[in-house]
Simulated scan of single mutants.
Amino acid sequence: MKRATIYSIAEELGISASTVSRAFTRPELVKRSVRERILATAEQLGYEPSWAARGLATGRTGLIGLLIPDITNPFFPPLVRAIEKAAAGRGSGVLLVDAEANGAAEPGLVAQLKPQVEGLIIASPRAPSAALKEAVGQTPAVVVNRAMRGLPTVVVDNGPALREAVRNLVADGHHKLVVMRGPADAWAAARRVEAVRAAAGQEGAELVELGPFEAQFEDGRRAAREILASGATGVLAFDDLMACGVLSGLAERGRRVPDDFSLVGCDDVLLARTVTPALTTITAPLEELGNHVVERLDGVARGEAVKDVRVRGELTVRGTTAPAPGTS
């Protein structure tokens, strides 16, 4: 069977190929009843619009650029999927670029993406704000998981859930806690430590701050020695990947979770649900996050005044938290 084209659709309906093209690229210029007939015929014939062809015809690519800091971190693949799903619902595709945990490279990557896309989503960037904003220029853009003046932002507010996690640990008899700081240049890392620090103060718990660490399994595993030396019985890690490293490092030293230590992660990635015991963590509403991000980008592209958005993380209690040793 020959592949369907705008010309075969036009021939089937007895209209011009330019009208068919406009139905996909400039639908506002095509009468609604005509466009509905075109779309129905396109579906019947199995027509799939080509982003490249649309770009040549209209100067628009239909693509959103998505820059993430580290594709190996398990937080980002489900976020990418959520954004792709939300973008597809608006007829757009996503062009993904990985900064490979190199914040200094982010402005250059943004500059490379700009000519190929209609808008930018920049997730958890580490580069200085001024450099990022200069790289973005006049391109519609939204920043995820970092508050930044001059660009619309969508962030996950984990503060209330982290404070709840601290309260639960203290109620379980953990009066000395460790908080593991994330990457030094990560905006979210500072916010998470601030929330834990405030909660520990309110609950009268002693807090030991370790790090900063990279958001990596190995950093968590190596930190187990420092955790043991701290004398704490409760640990709050920057993210789930780091927490799973802690779980492994403690096991290597003959310590068990949650019998000897209670452990809390953050983000609720797939790994948190598959590790044994399953990880108590802060669940990020990724699908909601993806919808908000794409919706805000759409608004920016239309020239609307777009407000910043905060979505709330929630504490999910699983198998890595329990009463402190020696408590009933």
Rank of each mutant, 00 (worst) to 15 (best):
A17C: 05
T321F: 02
P115L: 09
L132G: 04
A104Q: 08
L162N: 06
D260F: 11
A272K: 04
V34L: 15
E314M: 11
L113I: 09
D70W: 04
R222A: 11
T280I: 08
E304A: 13
E314D: 13
T19G: 08
A305F: 01
S16Y: 05
D239F: 02
E206M: 03
L263W: 02
L151G: 06
F238H: 12
E36M: 12
A171Q: 12
L79V: 14
E84G: 01
V20Q: 06
G231N: 07
V154Y: 00
N291Y: 10
A278R: 15
V235G: 01
V178T: 02
P183A: 04
I64G: 00
A284N: 13
A104E: 12
E134L: 12
R197D: 12
R255D: 08
A131K: 12
T19F: 04
T281W: 04
A199I: 05
S18K: 14
G89C: 05
A42G: 10
S129A: 15
M180V: 00
H174W: 09
L13G: 07
F217S: 01
N102W: 03
L270V: 09
T320A: 05
G201D: 08
L151A: 09
L279E: 01
P115A: 12
R302S: 12
R167K: 15
A123R: 00
F24D: 10
R192N: 00
V193P: 01
L151Q: 07
C244Q: 14
L263A: 06
E252C: 04
L29S: 15
E48D: 12
F24R: 11
Y47W: 12
A135F: 04
G249E: 04
A111T: 06
T72Y: 10
S248N: 10
T320P: 07
L96R: 04
T320G: 08
G137H: 10
R90L: 14
R221P: 03
V257L: 01
L236K: 02
V142Q: 00
E203T: 15
A322D: 02
L270S: 14
E252T: 11
R221Q: 14
A105E: 08
E194N: 10
T5Y: 04
T61Q: 07
T321Q: 05
G93P: 05
A4L: 09
V179K: 03
R37I: 07
G182M: 00
R81Y: 11
G55P: 06
G46C: 12
F261H: 07
R32M: 11
A147V: 15
G150H: 04
V110F: 00
G137R: 07
R191A: 13
L79D: 02
A88T: 13
T139H: 09
V156W: 08
P183N: 03
E28S: 15
D268E: 14
G245D: 04
P74C: 04
V20D: 06
E209C: 05
N158T: 15
L228D: 03
L96P: 05
L228E: 13
H174I: 07
A53Y: 02
G290T: 01
T72I: 13
E43T: 15
R222D: 04
V142N: 00
E11V: 10
A101N: 14
G108V: 10
G173S: 09
A243D: 02
W187K: 02
V309C: 02
K133G: 03
D298M: 09
T276R: 15
T41E: 11
R32E: 15
A40P: 03
Q138F: 11
A223M: 01
